[in-house]
Design a protein around this nucleic acid. Structure first.
Length: 342
DNA sequence: GGTAGACCTGGACGC
DNA sequence: GCGTCCAGGTCTACC
């Protein structure tokens, strides 16, 4: 009988701060991720060996202060084996980008010193490429609140259940067997039904090899070309997948990017002209262009709505004009709105 | 290569 | 309560 523990420690890079870095990208608001602002704890239902496991991630505060680099505490509802903890660790290393060392972030801060003081630069993501892919598809052509609802329903109806009743993210195997019409009826994914099922089937058939996409040996262009060839993936989604794969040179520009260009950077003209100016604006940041864009965007959200670690996912969704979004882009637990998207 | 319109959901708004 | 309008990115047909 292998030794088992209810909690373990996880070492992090010396600049890592959980509340800042785990809430650095909007996917932290999508199930099965659950950020708990009052405890500054990150709850996640992970799928380990086809079983759902609830894990709580916290960062202790020595002397009551936040100290960057303090190892995280991972705790579960029951004792887990060493093998299980090894898999949990590896999922969280991907999710929290703990394999991205302080050196990489220092390089970004040299290029864009605005974010050096706060120390931000690391972007959270999902524990698997499949989940990142499906989350990206659910973020296209809908309001952010609808994206939240789709992910909630996907987990609720097709995710594996944990002992507590929480649900993990559905696997490619499960989604590949779902009829598109059933997916549409239960998860309100609309016309994305066939695309999501086909993506899941491509995973199970081996037509999509996540290891190929994760391989840094391939060029950005090769990965972009492969991504944009997938069903439901266009220029925005392919660029977003690149940043989720740790390639930050391209900008996934969507309507939020346009709004940012107009209202924050003061760009004028047609959408195409604003897009072009945005690309020029961040071009000097080279391999860190997306980080610069994203944290600038996030800063504008936080100026209106407070720090990201105080946000909660909210439903129903407000539908706002581009101009109104500028005023109501993010939401605090007190009940204002959120649009801090993925 | 560029453009127009369909694809859906869900919130806002008018009646 | 119902109908209409609108926002959102991708895909396909057409020029």
């Amino acid at each position: 009988m292998p030794a088992s523990k209810r909690s373990i420690h996880l070492d992090v890079p010396r600049d890592y701060v959980l509340r800042r870095d785990a809430t650095s990208y909007g996917y932290f608001l999508l199930e099965p991720n659950r950020w708990v602002p009052e405890n500054e704890a990150f709850d996640r239902t992970l799928t380990i060996d086809q079983r759902a496991i609830d894990v709580r991630i916290t960062q202790p505060r020595p002397g009551g202060r936040i100290v960057a680099g303090t190892p995280l505490v991972l705790s579960s509802d029951r004792a887990r084996t060493k093998a299980e903890w090894t898999k949990v660790r590896s999922a969280l290393i991907r999710m929290l980008r703990l394999d991205e060392g302080a050196k990489v972030l220092a390089e970004f801060h040299r290029l864009d010193p605005r974010f050096k003081r706060e120390g931000c630069g690391r972007l959270m993501r999902s524990p698997t490429f499949f989940e990142d892919l499906i989350k990206t598809v659910t973020s296209c052509n809908v309001t952010w609140a609808t994206t939240i609802a789709m992910n909630r329903k996907l987990c609720q109806h097709f995710g594996p259940g944990s002992a507590s009743g929480a649900r993990g993210f559905p696997s490619p195997e499960v989604l590949s067997r779902v009829r598109p019409a059933t997916l549409r009826a239960r998860c309100s994914v609309g016309y994305r039904d066939h695309r999501i099922v086909e993506l899941a089937r491509m995973f199970t058939r081996g037509d999509i090899n996540p290891e190929w996409f994760e391989d840094p040996a391939h060029s950005d262009q090769a990965v972009y070309d492969a991504a944009i060839a997938l069903p439901g993936i266009g220029p925005y989604a392919a660029s977003n997948l690149l940043q989720l794969l740790g390639r930050y040179a391209r900008l996934p520009l969507d309507s939020e990017g346009l709004r940012h260009g107009e209202t924050v950077l003061g760009f004028r003209g047609t959408d195409a002209a604003i897009m072009k100016r945005l690309k020029q604006h961040y071009q000097p940041m080279g391999p860190h262009a997306f980080r610069s864009y994203w944290f600038e965007l996030r800063t504008s959200y936080q100026e209106r709505s407070g720090p990201s670690w105080t946000w909660l996912p909210k439903r129903p969704a407000p539908v706002l004009s581009r101009a109104h979004k500028a005023a109501f882009s993010a939401e605090k637990p007190t009940g204002t709105r959120t649009n801090a998207r993925g």
